[in-house]
């Protein structure tokens, strides 16, 4: 991959184009950093695809049933595994990466350059969303191989809105966790400690039919995201799940508020 650098002749460019160039510059280097690191590339990116492939083999024969809310098992899992891949590349990845970079001084180093904080975060968030989108496409493709129909065309806007809103909300929550966790070694455990039970009660790996659990999980961010994606993936009416969007938005705003107030660039 050859690297060219936005240079001073850019003075003639409008500041908007300059901003876009800088954003692209950041995304490219975030991508390089991500794909070169076997750990992030595997656990964040490949893992959900592998899980989908295994689930395809395990549950491929289970047709439409009440247990899966009238969908086939794989229709259900394509959307929940897609959701969990977004959680991984936005929430988990971002929290761990930021905590690590802060601890070893990389964030302070970035702060020492003229790159504005907004440029740094825009690049990082755009990178996470990009990874999520590619992951979701791959998971959808694996589902297709097992015979799961693609989402109906009228549902694509709903799918896009759900993905972007969910990715943004989980990015905000990831930055919030990175702001609250001071110690990089603790970051992966804290991230998992929060995520693991949440994913289970939200029906990601198994549909939940308890009204109480669904009530609780419905107010937390993962289930609304699962439901929004499930709706977008498997129905053909064009209504939007406003309630789910509302919950996601609230969590996103809460995460952003914590992030803005508590985020620190250096570890001391």
């Amino acid at each position: 991959m050859s690297i060219d650098v936005p240079r001073a002749q850019a003075g003639r460019l409008s500041s908007r184009r300059l901003g876009l160039r800088l954003l692209w510059h950041q995304i490219r280097y975030e991508q390089l950093t991500f794909w070169r690191n076997p750990q992030s590339a595997f656990f964040t990116f490949v893992f959900p695809v592998v899980v989908m492939a295994i689930f395809g083999g395990l549950f491929g024969s289970i047709g439409k049933s009440e247990f899966y809310y009238g969908r086939s098992a794989l229709q259900y899992y394509v959307s929940t595994i897609a959701a969990v891949s977004v959680l991984g590349s936005c929430y988990s990845q971002l929290a761990i990466v930021l905590a690590t970079r802060r601890q070893n001084g990389m964030l302070k180093r970035v702060r020492a350059t003229p790159l504005p904080a907004s440029g740094y975060f825009a690049g990082l968030l755009a990178h996470c969303v990009l990874v999520s989108v590619v992951d979701v496409l791959l998971i959808t493709a694996v589902g297709r191989l097992y015979g799961v129909p693609l989402p109906a065309a009228p549902q694509w806007p709903a799918l896009a809105v759900s993905l972007v809103l969910g990715a943004a909300a989980f990015c905000a929550l990831g930055v919030a966790v990175a702001s609250l966790v001071r110690n990089a070694e603790a970051a992966p455990s804290v991230v998992q400690f929060v995520l693991f039970p949440l994913v289970f009660i939200s029906g990601t790996y198994m549909p939940i039919h308890s009204a109480l659990l669904n009530g609780i999980a419905g107010a937390l961010p993962v289930k609304p995201f699962n439901d929004a994606l499930l709706l977008a993936f498997t129905t053909d009416h064009t209504g939007l799940p406003w309630r789910d969007y509302g919950v996601l938005l609230l969590w996103g705003v809460a995460g952003a508020a914590v992030a803005v107030r508590r985020f620190r660039w250096d570890s001391r």
């Binding site: 690297i3 001073a8 950093t33 180093r109 003229p114």
Partner: peptide, 29 residues
């Protein structure tokens, strides 16, 4: 320009990439 006490460079980038990335942040690198 700052040279800080901690060594804080991305382990998976090459030497040239690391420098080129920061070069992109300055108006006249």
């Amino acid at each position: 320009g700052l040279v800080l006490q901690d060594i804080a460079v991305e382990p998976y980038l090459t030497v040239r990439e690391t420098i080129a990335r920061d070069a992109g942040y300055y108006p006249a690198p």
